[in-house]
């Protein structure tokens, strides 16, 4: 699909908007529909579009596989880490109220952090799955 001019130009304009929207969904998910799961999937679909239009190689140059593997594990670790920190600060596992002096403020910090963890993991796992599948198509 390397020679489709219209597709390339449209994708170039569309991809930044999709990524911006993914960040909006991620960090505004407390007040409007959205959250980590949706943001991760939208973020990965931006890169999916990029690799469909510009080829797999250039997409892998932007986000190499080993980074994605590290990111996928980091998201889960961030999630579980918030729970452990809550334990260390005197609460139960994943009891965010212990994270700050005010319970509601602690809840807010905890929710934003774990949504970030969910977003990172879901986004990188979806991209990893797509790259692994797409590499199977190339040879032969």
């Amino acid at each position: 699909m390397q020679d489709k001019l219209i597709l390339r130009v449209v994708a170039k304009w569309l991809i930044p908007v999709i990524i911006l929207f993914a960040f909006y969904v991620q960090f505004h998910g407390d007040y409007s529909p959205g959250g980590g799961f949706q943001a991760g999937v939208i973020f990965s679909s931006a890169f999916l579009l990029y690799s469909l239009v510009y080829g797999l190689e250039s997409a892998i140059k932007v986000l190499p596989d080993h980074w994605l593997k590290v990111a996928a594990c980091f998201g889960v670790l961030l999630y579980a880490g918030v729970g452990v920190v809550a334990m260390l600060m005197g609460g139960n596992f994943l009891d965010y109220s212990a994270l700050a002096s005010e319970p509601v403020a602690g809840q807010h910090i905890g929710i934003i952090l774990i949504e970030l963890g969910v977003g990172i993991t879901v986004g990188s796992v979806m991209l990893l799955i797509f790259f692994t599948f797409a590499r199977r198509v190339l040879p032969k």
Binding site: G35, F37, V41, V122, V125, M126, I129, F133, R136
Partner: peptide, 20 residues
């Protein structure tokens, strides 16, 4: 159901990998 959708696509992808 929100989480079930995302988990569902991940497990379906495992199925596709098995098909390959």
């Amino acid at each position: 159901m929100l989480t079930a959708i995302v988990v569902g696509v991940a497990t379906t992808a495992v199925g596709f990998a098995l098909v390959i």
